[in-house]
Simulated assay, not measured.
Amino acid sequence: MASAARLLPMTEVTFYLSSKVGEGVRQALAWRIADKALKQGRQVYVHCQNEAHARQLDAQFWQSPPTGFLPHALSSEGQAPVLLGFGDDPGHQHDVLINLSDGVPDFSSRFQRVAEMISGDEAERQQGRERFRFYRDRGFPVTTHELG
């Protein structure tokens, strides 16, 4: 009798949409989603555009919001429940990916969940539409949440 192949669950993709425009909107959304995931006991990898972006986000996560704390680290400098990284290797992470890059990371399908942050900026919305089509055209289950 042939053994059945073990099917891995399909990566779930959620787009979080904000009507707010301005620098830092996507980063603030990322903090909010990472905090929620952390409270659910999940491990989070925040994929940044490049090293400078990861370091900027690291500084921002230490400063705001003033009433909250999100245990995080740069993936190249340590371990934490929330890792900030860039490039092609998210390490051993495979739970929640928060994508802050302009494209779809090659490794996104190895995560259980992917969160895409979209602000009200028209250029960001257009890039978000392209990522949405990428996921949808490859059969990923995609949902959207309007956050105001």
Rank of each mutant, 00 (worst) to 15 (best):
E146H: 15
D102P: 06
R32W: 05
Y135P: 10
H92Y: 02
V13Q: 02
V82Q: 05
S108T: 07
G128I: 11
Q27H: 05
E51M: 07
Q43K: 15
D137K: 10
L84S: 02
F86A: 06
E116C: 09
D137V: 05
G128F: 12
S119G: 13
A30S: 11
A73Q: 13
Q93G: 12
A28N: 15
S119D: 15
G41T: 02
V25Q: 08
I118A: 11
Y135C: 12
D137P: 00
H94S: 11
A73C: 10
F86R: 03
E130H: 04
E77P: 05
S101V: 02
G91V: 09
R32Q: 14
D102S: 14
D58Y: 08
T14S: 10
R32V: 04
E12Q: 14
N99F: 09
G103K: 10
P65I: 03
D95A: 01
T67R: 06
D106S: 13
P65H: 02
V114Y: 03
Y45I: 13
V21R: 14
W62D: 13
D88F: 00
R138N: 14
A4F: 10
Q27R: 09
A52Q: 15
A5W: 01
E23K: 13
E122G: 04
G85K: 08
T143Y: 05
F69V: 11
K20M: 08
G148S: 14
S3E: 11
S18M: 09
T143C: 12
T14R: 11
H72S: 01
R138P: 13
V104Y: 06
P105M: 00
K36T: 13
G24L: 08
Q79S: 14
S19K: 14
R129M: 09
P81K: 03
R42D: 01
E122I: 08
G120T: 09
